[in-house]
């Protein structure tokens, strides 16, 4: 269909076009809810069945890094909302600024996630043939990034967990399946979101967005906020199991 200015040929008015695009994104987000729903279900069943292993696995995650990333992602949602506001009020410089900030925060998130993933690879905590929940306890020399106090605590926890669940290694692997499955899927969505943000940034630098035409900022914003919501649930589900021990 031909495009006249900002209006695509299949639409009659800009308002109809905006309505359509927004509805389309919302419906897409519902499919995303169901997409994450499948793995949430697998998580729920296994967390309930193998609670000791899940608590054990959760306690090996760094609360500091996870919490920091939560704050980063919430902040990026805020800057994204501000980018939408800037577009709605035609503040062209601010759009670019807030989009850049959002991208920056997204990359901070990636960076922290990389550190966390690398550590898990290093500690043999990735599901598969090499998975070994006892790796660090048995080879403390190879896990020098864990300080002695933490290592002692971890050892104690693992011993207690094995008492409760003799098949800890297999079941802890289920926890890490959930961890990598869910955060990996979430990270994949962030990568897509970051790609969309770069495109918005390019358009924004070209000065395309204003009060009349800000559809793309708005609907990419919806997507970005959705990714944030997923993390809002992932953080307590993965990082905060049985922390009070």
């Amino acid at each position: 269909m031909h495009r006249t200015g900002a209006l695509y040929g299949q639409f009659k008015t800009l308002e109809q076009q905006k309505d359509t695009a927004t509805l389309g994104m919302w419906i897409f987000l519902v499919t995303e809810v169901m997409f994450f729903g499948g793995i949430m279900l697998a998580y729920t069943i296994n967390r309930h069945t193998y609670f000791h292993a899940f608590a054990m696995g959760s306690n090996t995650l760094s609360l500091g890094l996870g919490g920091f990333n939560t704050v980063v992602l919430l902040a990026s949602s805020f800057t994204m909302a501000m980018a939408v506001w800037s577009a709605q009020t035609s503040k062209k410089g601010l759009i670019t600024l807030f989009l850049s900030l959002t991208i920056f925060l997204g990359f901070v998130f990636f960076g922290v996630k990389y550190v966390e993933y690398a550590q898990k690879f290093h500690h043999h905590l990735v599901p598969g043939k090499t998975f070994d929940i006892f790796y660090c306890v048995r080879n403390p020399a190879k896990c020098s990034d864990i300080d002695a106090a933490d290592m002692a605590k971890e050892k104690e926890e693992i011993e207690a967990a094995v008492q409760a669940d003799p098949d800890l290694n297999a079941h802890a692997q289920l926890y890490y399946s959930a961890y990598f499955g869910m955060t990996g899927l979430h990270a994949l969505h962030m990568v897509i979101g970051a790609g969309l943000l770069f495109w918005l940034l390019k358009e924004s630098v070209a000065g395309r967005f204003n009060a009349e035409w800000n559809n793309p900022v708005d609907i990419v914003g919806l997507y970005w906020h959705f990714v944030d919501i997923v993390w809002i649930y992932l953080f307590p589900l993965l990082y905060l199991i049985d922390r009070h021990k």
Binding site: I27, V30, T31, E32, M34, F35, F36, G37, G38, I39, A42, N46, T49, Y50, P127, G128, K129, F131, D167, A170, H171, Q173, L174, S177, F180, G181, L185
Partner: peptide, 30 residues
């Protein structure tokens, strides 16, 4: 739109299980 994403994630998990050894559907791992 409501059903298809569920089979997508399911087949995704099954493929990951075959290739990388995730354990959700493997009774030997619980």
């Amino acid at each position: 739109i409501l059903g298809t994403p569920v089979i997508a994630i399911t087949l995704g998990l099954a493929a990951m299980e075959r290739v990388f050894g995730l354990g959700f559907f493997n009774p030997a791992m619980g």
